[in-house]
Design a protein around this nucleic acid. Structure first.
Lengths: 123, 123
DNA sequence: CAGATGTATGAATAATTTTTCATATGTAGG
DNA sequence: CCTACATATGAAAAATTATTCATACATCTG
């Protein structure tokens, strides 16, 4: 029952496509934290943090273990660091507009640059 | 005006978090295609394909160039291949359930395995 | 075991995103 | 310049996802 990339990737990327969850992942780069700490750090409700931790753990971007009363969440660095690295490389090379995607005008400008510097690749 | 990861990553990952767009990216691994070809291959409306091509190009996951009447879209392999590679590695190691995220039961089972095989990392 | 602390859950509402359909724009050829 | 082909766009409707709030559950401590 092999499934193709586009099917299997969807959970993976949609779990990452959320500002709160990305903020949690970034926070956990600094080390394991419990739910309350995460909520305080991000200025978010505890229940919202819990709701968002669930898909992150389901996809195993984070791990968790109980420690006394609390539950410590930690980052799956093996996956997340390469992912962040690819993002950073891409955004620095292709999206120099402060790391975000391009506006219409910026896109036109980039395409012009690409064309003149032969970076443009059509394969 | 440096922005943190969680802000800048959002466009990047949310553009990938869509089945149609993932299918387009996968299709373009096979080489450049025009809009009509993509629509036919995916059995989707042309307008829907166009709508989905836009964010992909905005984030520069794909490039495009006009060729006579049509417009040829091609994959930014430099970004997409490492991304797919990270996904495949992750899903094979952490989500052996056919490449998708885990169900409740599967997650418990995995955590048990992690614990016994010392793969579990808390950092 | 009662209370305190920490976390998870369900369900309603709110917000965002996707899809569709009609139509506009852009380009090449006769 | 008229027509056909190729692609893009806007706006409404549909679908999905996020957020909130109340409350349940689980664990530790005295």
């Amino acid at each position: 029952m092999k499934r193709n990339l586009s099917e299997t990737c969807y959970d993976f990327f949609s779990t990452l496509a959320n500002p709160t969850r990305l903020a949690i992942l970034e926070l956990l780069r600094g080390g394991p934290k419990n739910v309350t700490d995460i909520a305080n750090n991000l200025n978010q409700e505890q229940s919202m943090v819990s709701h968002n931790l669930k898909p992150l753990e389901k996809c195993r971007f984070i791990f968790s273990e109980r420690k006394k009363r609390e539950r410590l969440y930690s980052l799956n660095r093996e996956t997340m660091e390469p992912l962040f690295k690819t993002f950073i490389y891409h955004s620095e090379k292709y999206c120099p507009a402060g790391g975000r995607c391009l506006t219409e005008g910026e896109l036109r400008e980039q395409k012009r640059k690409d064309a003149s510097s032969k970076v443009f690749v059509t394969h």
